[in-house]
């Protein structure tokens, strides 16, 4: 068999596919046993290729079905087999179907992200409109209850007035006291705070802190620091309150550490942002 004869035979085989075979190789096949054998092998080769293609197509569909069965949700579309797509010759299933999955995942992710964005945006907008230093003051202000176990056997008039919530009397008694200790100063500050006199309250609490700093003591120190921050909130000055609250939050031994740790610093910073605008 010459190469030219083999070529003609292959052309004949290909034309047979389309129903237009040329007659000349048929005569060759009929009269030459070697040509008949060659013809047989060429036909086997074509059969083998077709079988390989079909095998690949079935494998592709099977793999796709398996992925669909394992997927949590129904896929957006069914992958169709194309035996040899452009630039992805013979093993396209994994690449093309993974592309579909990635597209599906991306679609769901985008929907989820959009949903989260809407929720987050709504929450932030709501917070922005509602959060203020005043609202924070109302949220975090709590009345101070005197601890009588501090060693006092007999309650002083100012303590009695405080216990009975007579805020004006507390203030009057504190003003009448010549040398005020930290307790008197603090209670006076709390009474002012109860009467919404935040500026006066701030003065009393700062006085407690200054006295402790001067005497190297800590009498009513933690209480003064906490309520000083609360007083700044009451006076709508979050910028002044924040450093004190952050200091308390950073100090696990501070008496008001837990209380401050439970505060929303997001809301505090939002109020601070609004204040600085």
């Amino acid at each position: 068999m010459t190469p030219e004869e083999t070529r003609k035979m292959i052309d004949h085989l290909d034309e047979s596919r389309t129903g237009r075979p040329s007659p000349s190789p048929e005569q060759l096949i009929d009269r030459d046993p070697q040509a008949a054998q060659e013809w047989y092998y060429l036909n086997l080769a074509v059969d083998a290729v077709r079988n390989a293609g079909l095998h690949e197509q079935v494998a592709f569909i099977k793999e796709n079905l398996r992925k669909e069965q394992n997927a949590p949700a129904k896929p957006a579309h069914t992958e169709q087999y194309i035996a040899v797509p452009a630039n992805q010759p013979t093993k396209p299933a994994a690449e093309r179907s993974s592309g579909a999955i990635i597209r599906s995942i991306s679609k769901y992710s985008l929907r989820a992200a959009a949903f989260i964005l809407v929720i987050t945006s709504s929450t932030v907008l709501y917070k922005y409109l509602t959060v203020s230093s005043s609202s924070l003051y109302e949220r975090y202000f709590g009345a101070y209850n005197l601890n009588t176990s501090r060693g006092e056997t007999t309650e002083s008039p100012i303590v009695q007035a405080y216990d009975t919530k007579d805020w004006n009397k507390v203030i009057a008694l504190a003003g009448a006291t010549g040398a005020r200790d930290n307790q008197v100063e603090f209670l006076a500050g709390m009474a002012d705070l109860q009467l919404n006199r935040c500026d006066d309250a701030i003065t009393h609490f700062e006085q407690v802190i200054a006295a402790n700093a001067q005497a190297s003591t800590d009498f009513y120190q933690d209480e003064a620091e906490y309520y000083l921050a609360i007083s700044w909130l009451a006076c709508k000055k979050v910028n002044q309150a924040m450093p004190i609250l952050e200091k308390i939050k950073a100090d696990p031994h501070h008496q008001y550490h837990q209380k401050v740790a439970e505060m929303s610093f997001f809301d505090l910073r939002l109020a601070q942002y609004k204040e600085n605008k």
Binding site: D14, R17, V46, V49, A52, L54, A83, P89, T90
Partner: peptide, 17 residues
């Protein structure tokens, strides 16, 4: 067919399958 190599396999599949 698998022994043919990728380029030949591809050419034959495109044409005959």
């Amino acid at each position: 067919v698998d022994q043919l190599g990728e380029s030949c396999r591809k050419v034959l599949l495109l044409f005959y399958y």
